[in-house]
Design a binder for these strands. Structure first.
Lengths: 237, 237
DNA sequence: CTAATAGTGTCTATAAGACAGTATGGT
DNA sequence: ACCATACTGTCTTATAGACACTATTAG
């Protein structure tokens, strides 16, 4: 910390990578920009930090406001800050980005404040404004890693869910197939990951099978032992 | 992203949590402030983001400049951003903080530019300015977690090191004792964690024992399987 | 010599993964 | 009837942790 007064003018924005799972694919919420620069192209929901507003507060506000999502996300955390001097052509802008996990929600309504907003599969995104493609990529990688060590996969599910639904979340986010039987035993063996509600689904699966037991998120904040992704040699080196 | 022009004036600073290990204790680099607010009290090295400067670049500059450290840290990464509206009494300041790991270095020289800087044990810090105590705590927790899944413990060691030195790093950062024999076997069994130089130490330990084989950091970016801390029930729930 | 350290061997408990098998319920 | 699904059982292999043991070197 040094002398005040001679700092360069900087603007701070807050951008949100909101992820959900739809149709067995990971989706991110993006909005269509109506102002320059990048007018007409897609971007993360976000905007300038309000006066007197905390960063996390601003992230929640931007997500609710600009996306038109009624429900709150099940989880939101800081992802990182992006400050390349050339990332915004207008002026120096530092973006503090947040990562949110939401269960599958109805399509955002288009409102007065709400630009065209929609869920897009992360592996088939249109070109994004600024460095938002990079931010999305970082968010997806963070989500993949978090599923290993935390029970946050449950944030993609509803209030109650079956073990198969939970497995589908892991398979979708990781992009791998998991052994159903072993996954089942593993999930139930990690203390505090899930707890049984006592109920079951109303019907069997779409193609048959017994009714599945229902669970809700447990009280664990960390999975111990963790649920590790199959090792990919190229990720390790 | 919305309308420009009506954003609140915000300053962006970059602060660095630089960690090292000295005398079997984890230390953080702090500097004495000579300007208000908090003049005379201790703070993290940091300062305003320069014009045209990237965030990581600013972090490296502040660390080198303000701390008087000659050598570069072995590792630096973004830790997080702190933007509580009341965190700086002067005006709205968002701090983007970085986390650095350094091997045990000589005491920083006091220079023209250099305020009084020094390494302090993280579990015995003087009161810190702003929310820097919180930032240090977050940095320490990040460091603890990173040792589990990444080979970053080697960033606390010199260019070559023994398995015992590496174990001491883990024990110090985690604040636990580890079984020497099992740790030895585990470290050597993780692919790419360390590689033998072929050499050994010149002498045995200070209190006897054979010469230890020397290793350097390997090419792994992730430890697989990870080196997990002994589970602490209170951390999990 | 004694004590401390480096490194290895071995045993046990636990966990991961492959695979099989049973019961249920949709079509 | 058929088949996908929800589990559960069992076997094999890998890993973690406890413990023991040998070899080496400082003092």
């Amino acid at each position: 910390m040094e002398d005040f007064g001679l700092y360069a003018p900087v603007a701070v924005t807050v951008d949100v990578v909101a992820l959900t799972i739809r149709d067995r694919r990971l989706h991110v919420l993006i909005v269509e920009r109506d102002a320059e620069p990048y007018a007409g192209s897609w971007a993360l929901p976000g905007g300038f930090l309000g006066p007197g507003e905390d960063l996390a507060e601003a992230a929640r506000r931007e997500l609710a406001e600009e996306s038109g999502l009624g429900a709150r996300p099940a989880h939101i955390e800081q992802l990182g800050s992006y400050g390349d001097p050339a990332r915004d052509p207008r002026m120096r802008v530092v973006s503090v980005s947040y990562l949110a996990f939401a269960p599958d929600l109805p399509d955002p309504r288009a409102g007065a404040d709400t630009a065209t907003a929609g869920w897009h599969a992360v592996d088939d995104l249109p070109p994004l404004a600024f460095d938002h493609a990079r931010i999305v990529a970082d968010g997806v990688e963070r989500a993949r890693a978090k599923l290993e060590y935390t029970p946050l996969a449950t944030a993609f599910a509803g209030a109650t869910f079956t073990v198969s639904e939970l497995r589908l979340i892991y398979e979708t986010v990781w992009g791998t197939r998991l052994h159903a039987g072993n996954f089942h035993r593993k999930v139930l063996s990690v203390p505090g990951f899930v707890e049984a509600t006592g109920g079951t689904t109303e019907t069997g699966g779409t193609r048959g099978g017994p009714r599945a037991r229902l669970y809700r998120a447990g009280d664990a904040r960390l999975l111990h032992p963790p649920l590790l992704r199959p090792a990919r040699e190229e990720a390790i080196r």
